[in-house]
Design a protein around this nucleic acid. Sequence first.
DNA 1: GATACGTGGCT
DNA 2: TAGCCAAGTAT
Length: 289
Amino acid sequence: MSLDAQTLIDWFADTARDLPWRKPECTAWGVLVSEIMLQQTPVARVEPIWHEWLERWPTPSAMAAASQGDVLRAWGKLGYPRRALRLHEAARAISNDHDDVVPDDVDTLLALPGIGAYTARAVAAFAYGQRCPVVDTNVRRVVARAVHGAGDAGPPSTTRDMNDVQVLLPEQDAAVFSAALMELGAVVCTARTPKCADCPVFDTCAWQHNGRPAYDGPVKVVQKFAGTDRQVRGLLLDVLRGTPDPVAKTRLDVVWSDAGQRDRCLDSLLVDGLVEQTATGLFALPGEH
DNA sequence: GATACGTGGCT
DNA sequence: TAGCCAAGTAT
C-alpha cells in the first residue's frame, strides 16, 4: 500500500523533465552546482545560470581559481548570494583537499560549506547512485499526503523525515526512486493545486483514501520581504554587481531612504563577506583570490 | 526549534 | 492585490 516504488520509477522514466543535471554525461560537480542553485530557487531561474557556470567553471579547481566577486556576479539575481560564496569555498576545499573530485560519501560532503542534510544526500544519490534518503520539501509533501494521508507536511524534522523516506527506499534503483519522488512533488503533487488526475499513485494515495483532509498542522509563518533587511541587502548588492569598480558610499545611499537600516545592512554584508571596503573607503564585491 | 537569508512568478 | 511558494543551510 501507499507508494509502490516501481510504479514511481516507471512513471519517472516516462515523464521526467529533461533537466541538464540529470543527463548521464553530467559530472558530480555539475550535480553539486545544481543542488546548491536549486535551494529555495525554481528550476526555470536556475537552468540558464547553471549552463553558464558549468561552461565557465567545468571543475571545482576552475571555480576555485576565480575571485569571489566574479562568482557573485555570475550568480546574478538567483538570490541568497551567500550560497555562491559557500559554493566557492566548497570548490576550494574540493580542489585542495579532495584531488578536485567531489566527495562521494555523505559525511565528507556534510563537512563542506553550504552543504546540509539534503544536499549531501542529493549528491551522494544523484551523482554517485547511492541508496540514501533524499528529503526536500517536495518529498516531505508527497510522503505527508501519499503515506500519512495529511493535507501537507508539518514542520520539518530531519531525523523523522529521513526515517520516513528510508523505509520507502527500494533495494534497487533507490536514487532513481528519490528523483522520482521529488519530481512527483514538483510537477504533480504540488503545494497549492495538486494535479491528482495525473498522479501515478492516485489509487494508493492515503490522502485520497482519507477524503483529502485539509492541512491541520501548525500555521506556517510566511516570510515578509518588502521593507526587510533582505530587500535592502539585495538592493545594495545589486549596485555592486552592476559596476566593475569600487563605488563611494553615496552610490549606495540612494537605494534606501532609511539611513539606519541601510547602514545596518551594509555592515551585515561586510560581516558576511559579501561586500568589502577598500583602503580608500570605497565599497565593492570581494576581490580576494 | 525558530529565525534570517533574495528574488520573482503565479493566483 | 497581497500572499504564497520555490530541490535549504547556518546559527
